[in-house]
Design a protein around this nucleic acid. Structure first.
Lengths: 340, 340
DNA sequence: ATATGGATTGGAAACGGTTCCGGAAAGTCG
DNA sequence: CGACTTTCCGGAACCGTTTCCAATCCATAT
């Protein structure tokens, strides 16, 4: 198959290269007659613009990158996928870059900025700490997804998330309403991870409202948002904490790991121990038992993030969007067992 | 942050642009002295090559795309992720493009070929039918992953896969060895999908070897490799087929859907019905019950695909790699119940 | 000493677009 | 009817690299 250049098209249409370019970019200063003739040739020979050449010219390209921190998170990759879907429709192309939790997302960002001349970024599952100053320095539009950047003070960063604190509070309320009094929290250990911090705060809000104390040192496990991690940690933890009747985790994946560990220890869910998840992934509905969780609006998060970034690429001011969550009841939570 | 060009570097180092380029590309014809001086400036001012300009120059770039057909497949996205990891080390950059099963991967390929000048492709979860002729026409190196292209007759296509037929035969043998005689098969409905065809053949091999007949019209369900799809179909199917004691599915995801459906119907797995998966995803280990499955070597598939493509980009002939699988026993398969 | 040749290096032409600038044609207006 | 706008289009410079070709330098062979 032949690959045509803009010059080929120009020649075939009997016009100048610049005219073809104008037609292709929808500039107004082209006569209808010419536009038609050019488009005819374009479709006829299946001409496609060379992205490299196009973006070479633009100093800062209208091309965006999604950086997903946490390869293994089902929720995050779901969101990333959705973003890609949304991006299909937009005129600015998107690419996704998955990095490990151990990697630095701002180095990645800088790299993509310089090497590919990405003009905007969506940071998915990113932490927000002193290192994020880097994006202020670059001055490139960014959207933090699933993280609240409203108090970051960054002039060029939007964010899209749910109210993690309220959601976790609701979840803890749900457990306490079921009579549970010995609850443990399985969270993440990402330093500076304010998603974790806010969810933790939410749990505390609930406990305090119920007049309960909570010793953080004793009771929340630090581990990654991962399946094996949660499994191993839960197995170890429950060896010595048989009095705990409920586990609040910060992802459905962790919940699944915890449930599997409990079952392997001969405990029943929810008869002996209740477990809650977070995110509302598809798996939470189909797991056995299905997992009580906070459903995050994946599609909305993706859509908002993409449109927000596109708006910013066209000069809009940053905005901070908070979306609604839903507490989705499953089979993994039951009333507190009176005795075991 | 400033962005430097190769000219800036050349000026600072007091050499010509072409010399800097040579250093950057590791050409041999540069004196050690010059190389050192240039590299000094490069690291000092954090220069990064502009990918667009770089690839603009190469008529056919040494840049590759992974096209994943089937957004929702956990297995496929795992493989894609692994490919990306492997690709990190290689000098040719990779990008991933997820498309729907409904979309045409060859249109996507053509698009990437023309617009981004991708010089090679990995097709993941792609079908292999008359449409794949398109890649012969383009003459661009391709690797089919999880599909056997050895009999495709395409001169520029490699493939990496396991022996699906043998694996499925082993799985069916496993069920029959457990005494099951009424088995149904839940497969995909992708027309021209020879992964399905080969697995189906494998199941038939086993049945025939055991002297059993199988009516395809009656007994295999056509549906997508999806969770909800399998769930809905299984629920419908088992309403009227209570005599079936085992289900052989073609993905772990489907197996999970089927199991959940059976439980919702009041049937126990594996006491009443045994279910098998395929792929050996992480979830199959942590599901309750854990799923007996065929473990595909994700990492090896990814690594082989990437290296194969890179080799082909450097002129190597296509190769057809078959990798080993493992039958992973879980809790989802038990002996055939004598009566219900 | 002179031709030969390898090792380095610099200069300049691409690569395929976009965009600025200026000119021609056509329309407007006093 | 001439001056002035407006509309539309062509020419050419430029984006940041790579690469070909030529030039320089110095060592070696003759």
């Amino acid at each position: 198959m032949e690959i045509y250049t803009i010059r080929d098209v120009a020649r075939k249409a009997g016009v100048a290269v610049s005219t073809v370019s104008r037609v292709l970019n929808g500039r107004p200063d082209v006569s209808e007659e010419t536009r038609r003739r050019v488009m005819e040739v374009v479709t006829e020979c299946g001409y496609v613009q060379n992205g490299n050449a196009r973006f070479l010219k633009h100093a800062r390209t209208d091309f965006a990158a999604i950086i997903v921190r946490g390869r293994r998170s089902m929720f995050l990759s779901d969101v990333a996928e959705q973003m890609l879907s949304c991006a299909q429709g937009m005129k600015t192309p998107f690419l996704v870059k998955y990095i490990d939790e151990a990697d630095d997302e701002f180095d990645t960002l800088r790299q993509l900025y310089a090497e590919k001349r990405a003009g905007g970024f969506i940071l998915l599952g990113s932490r927000l700490d002193e290192r994020s100053e880097a994006i202020r320095a670059l001055g490139v539009p960014c959207v933090f997804a699933t993280v609240d950047a409203s108090r970051s003070g960054l002039g060029n960063a939007s964010s899209v998330c749910i109210d993690d604190r309220a959601a976790t509070r609701a979840m803890m309320d749900h457990l306490l309403d079921n009579g549970h009094r010995r609850v443990t929290i399985f969270g993440g250990n990402r330093y500076g991870d304010d998603v974790f911090a806010r969810r933790y705060q939410g749990a505390m809000d609930s406990l305090h409202a119920h007049g309960m104390a909570f010793d953080p040192e004793e009771s929340y496990r630090c581990l990654r948002f991962s399946l094996e991690g949660a499994y191993n940690e839960a197995k170890r933890y429950f060896e010595g904490h048989r009095d705990v009747t409920a586990v609040l985790t910060m992802s459905d994946t962790m919940a699944a790991g915890v449930i599997r560990a409990l079952i392997d220890l001969g405990l029943r869910v929810p008869q002996d121990v209740s477990v809650t998840g977070f995110d509302g992934t598809q798996m939470s509905r189909f797991y056995v038992p299905s997992i009580t969780t906070i459903s995050q609006p994946v599609e909305a998060i993706a859509r908002e993030s993409v449109t927000l970034l596109c708006d910013m690429l066209e000069g809009a001011q940053p905005r901070y969007v908070t979306l609604d969550y839903t507490l989705l009841e499953g089979e993994s939570v039951g009333p507190c067992p009176t005795e075991r």
